[in-house]
Design a protein around this nucleic acid. Structure first.
Lengths: 231, 231
DNA sequence: AACTGTGAAACTTTTCACAGCG
DNA sequence: CGCTGTGAAAAGTTTCACAGTT
């Protein structure tokens, strides 16, 4: 499909990737009682340039007031709406190792938009135990008689990840967040995002090495901070 | 070949972000005894298109054999070299909660290019205990008399992250991997990468919602799988 | 014949410059 | 005036088409 259709809303991917950043900053401002903010300040809090923030927001509609700025609560609601956080998405975490437990106890879930509805492991010693108020179950049981799940989080060892993901897809899951290193080959239409510690470290190592090899060249590196001074 | 084929600054960021993917696939192939592979097959294993793989590799130089493919070991060595993994980078993990422990026990570290040289927490009950063969220490002690550190991993609660990062930078760390939600404001030249579960889930939620709202439009979604069929 | 390497084209994302509104 | 919203330019990235090599 070579044609880049104007989907409803037409929000570019790069923008979608930054909306959670803005929302986080806005939530924090709201908690501190701030009711209004300019693009420059909000951009600063999110670590982007103000023009980029404004361009991003322009894709959602026009919610600012010229000469003034944005109303924190309104903008937050608008972004939450765009991201689909007005409803609660049921999440399952598969793999109750160190990482799975860390994810299960991560506050950001219940916080907004997500609810963990099942925890899964295949170790008989772990199945049936209580983790963060939920009883760990098996994939078999989840397939047979578990709750509906929209998003699957894979926190198993790498070798199991592909198979686990396939079973999740079999259950109707079409959004997967994969913490196991390695590529998941899944049917088209399934959305996979991978988070891998090794990958992130290697990217840092690349820049680190670059700095050591060419210390003279003062080079604007990717991912560096402070684009715009804060007010 | 033009003289610019491998100038020091010549590797695009997008390419750098994919090199770890290729390296992982190559390492796995090597472990299975495969000695040679074509761009199409390797691309398939990494989840990218073959032209993209070849373009990416072309930035490192020309290590393939026309009509044949790539020698697995040579290409892996070349990518490792480019990423700076021929030396070992000393890493500190700050924050020994669930996540910090998960990271400390993640195999991928010692595996290649990274060595955890210190684990840090501020809870007196945790300081002094043994985690994965290392004694947990404090930031104070690390500043005073700790080993040199190149990369800092921040796995503290959000409110502490900014201050921890500043202290790491004060110790000379210029590469930080931040698992705490929120933007870190640090001096220019410091390279920060953030990994946030909430952000990733929200991006998935966006696509999930889009699917529900426009189920008719079969839409090439970001992050979907299967670009090229495998042999 | 099979597969790599690469210029050029197509597309995406960021930045600039400034019009427009409160 | 101060700040948003946005077309247009610039920069970056992906894909195409095919020349080149073994």
């Amino acid at each position: 499909m070579p044609e880049s259709a104007r989907r409803a809303g037409g929000v570019p991917d790069a923008t979608v990737g930054r909306l959670p950043l803005y929302l986080r900053a806005l939530t924090s401002l709201h908690d501190r009682g701030v009711t209004s903010i300019s693009s420059g300040e909000l951009a600063s809090l999110a670590g982007v340039r103000s023009t980029q923030l404004r361009k991003d927001l322009s894709h959602l509609g026009t919610y600012g007031v010229r000469g003034v700025g944005y109303e924190v609560e309104l903008l937050a609601a608008q972004i939450a709406q765009e991201l689909g956080l007005t409803q609660e998405w049921p999440v399952v975490i598969v793999g109750m190792g160190n990482l799975g437990r860390a994810l299960a106890s991560y506050g950001g879930f219940s916080d907004r938009g997500f609810r963990i509805v099942a925890l899964v492991d295949d170790d008989p010693d772990v199945v049936g135990t209580d983790v963060e108020g939920l009883i760990v179950t098996t994939l078999d049981e989840l397939e047979d008689s578990g709750p509906t799940v929209a998003i699957g989080v894979v926190a198993t060892p790498s070798p199991a990840a592909q198979q686990v993901a396939e079973r999740l897809v079999g259950m109707g899951v079409r959004s997967i967040l994969n913490f196991a290193p390695g590529y998941l080959s899944l049917p088209e239409g399934v959305d996979v995002r991978g988070v891998d510690l090794g990958t992130e470290l290697q990217i840092l190592a690349f820049h680190e090495q670059r700095r050591l090899l060419a210390p003279s060249t003062h080079d604007p590196l990717r991912g560096d901070a402070e684009k715009e001074a804060m007010g």
